[in-house]
C-alpha cells in the first residue's frame, strides 16, 4: 500500500513540477485528438446525410409496389448488364424505412408520417456508375424502363458534401497524425524532464534494489494522465461544438441533418480517450527506453 500511494503521489508531483511543458504536451494532445474526433464526427454527419448515396451510388430507381420479386430480380440483372453500370444493389421497403429513420432523425413531422405508414417508401435499385460523373445516360434509360416509378440522381449538393468530406478527411488526418507525433514527442519530453529532476532519487532507488516497475510506473502514469487530460479536453470541445451547432439549428439549412446519436458520440469519445492514454504511454515509454539512468 505504501508503494501504491508513493507511485500515485510521484506521478502528480511530476505534473506540477514542469507545469508549462506539461501544458504544452496536453495542448498538443488536445489539438491532435480534436482534429481526429472532429473529423470522425463530420464523417458521421455526412454519412447520415448521404446514407442512400453510400458506396458510390449516384442513381436511385424507385420501383412500383406491384413488381413481383421475380421481375425485380430480372430488372436488376438487366440494369447490371448495361455498360455504364458498375453495380446495382436492391433496397427493400424495410431497408428503406430503416434508412429514412436515420436520414430524417431531426425531422419530427416526417418521423410521425413514417411511424403511421412504415411501407410508405418504395423499394429501389441503387446504381453505382462505372464513371461517377457520367450517370445522365443511366437516368434516361431507367426512366424508360417499365416497372420503375421514379428516378433520382445525386444532386450537386450531395456531390459537394462528399467532396468536402473526402478533402477534409485527408487534411484532418494528415494534421492529426503530424500533431499526434508531436504530442507523443512532447509527452516524451515532459517525462524526460521529470526523470532528470529526479535522477538522484532514481539512482538511490536503483542502488537500494527498487524493482524496475516501481521506478518506472510513476512516469508511465504521468504520461498516461497527460494524454488522458488532452483527450478529455478534445472530447469536451468537439461534443460542445456539436451541441452548439445543433442548438443553432434554425440557422443551418434544414436539408442538413446534424443529429448524431449519443451512442455514437459515447463510443467514439471513449475511443479518443483510450487513444490519448495510449499516446501518453507511448511518449513515456519512449523516454524511459532512451533514458540511461534507468538502465540496469
Amino acid at each position: 500500500m505504501t508503494q501504491f500511494s508513493y507511485i500515485i503521489k510521484e506521478a502528480f508531483n511530476n505534473l506540477g513540477r514542469n507545469l508549462l511543458v506539461v501544458l504544452g504536451a496536453i495542448l498538443a494532445v488536445f489539438i491532435s485528438l480534436s482534429l481526429t474526433f472532429g473529423s470522425v464526427v463530420i464523417q458521421e454527419v455526412v454519412r447520415v446525410n448521404t446514407i442512400q448515396w453510400a458506396q458510390d451510388v449516384r442513381v436511385i430507381a424507385f420501383l412500383q409496389d406491384d413488381l413481383t420479386p421475380q421481375s425485380t430480380a430480372e430488372l436488376q440483372a438487366e440494369v447490371a448488364s448495361w455498360p455504364q453500370v458498375n453495380d446495382v444493389f436492391y433496397v427493400s421497403k424495410q431497408d428503406a424505412y430503416a434508412e429514412a429513420l436515420v436520414l430524417f432523425s431531426n425531422n419530427q413531422a416526417i418521423l410521425r408520417v413514417l411511424d403511421e405508414s412504415p411501407d410508405l417508401i418504395p423499394a429501389s435499385l441503387r446504381v453505382q456508375p462505372t464513371d461517377p460523373d457520367e450517370y445522365e445516360l443511366i437516368v434516361t434509360r431507367l426512366e424508360a424502363t417499365p416497372g420503375v416509378l421514379q428516378v433520382e440522381s445525386a444532386g450537386d449538393a450531395i456531390d459537394a458534401m462528399i467532396a468536402i468530406r473526402d478533402g477534409l478527411q485527408i487534411v484532418f488526418w494528415l494534421l492529426a497524425v503530424a500533431l499526434g507525433v508531436a504530442a507523443v514527442a512532447l509527452i516524451a519530453n515532459t517525462i524526460h524532464m521529470a526523470i532528470y529532476a529526479r535522477r538522484e532519487e532514481i539512482e538511490i532507488m536503483r542502488l537500494q534494489g527498487a524493482s524496475n516497475w516501481f521506478v518506472r510506473t510513476p512516469f508511465l502514469i504521468e504520461g498516461a494522465l497527460e494524454g488522458l487530460i488532452g483527450a478529455a479536453l478534445a472530447v469536451t470541445a468537439i461534443v460542445g461544438i456539436h451541441r452548439l451547432l445543433v442548438g443553432q439549428l434554425a440557422e443551418v439549412p434544414d436539408w442538413i441533418n446534424l443529429a448524431i446519436e449519443n451512442d455514437f458520440l459515447l463510443r467514439q469519445g471513449a475511443l479518443v480517450l483510450l487513444f490519448g492514454v495510449l499516446a501518453g504511454l507511448a511518449g513515456s515509454s519512449l523516454s524511459l527506453a532512451v533514458h540511461r539512468t534507468l538502465r540496469s
Partner: peptide, 20 residues
C-alpha cells in the same frame, strides 16, 4: 530484471553520501 533483487542484499556507501 533480476538485478534489483540482488541489490537488496547489498548495501552501498559512497564518498559523496548521495543523500536526498
Amino acid at each position: 530484471w533480476k538485478v534489483p533483487h540482488l541489490r537488496r542484499s547489498i548495501g552501498t556507501v559512497f564518498q559523496d553520501f548521495k543523500l536526498l
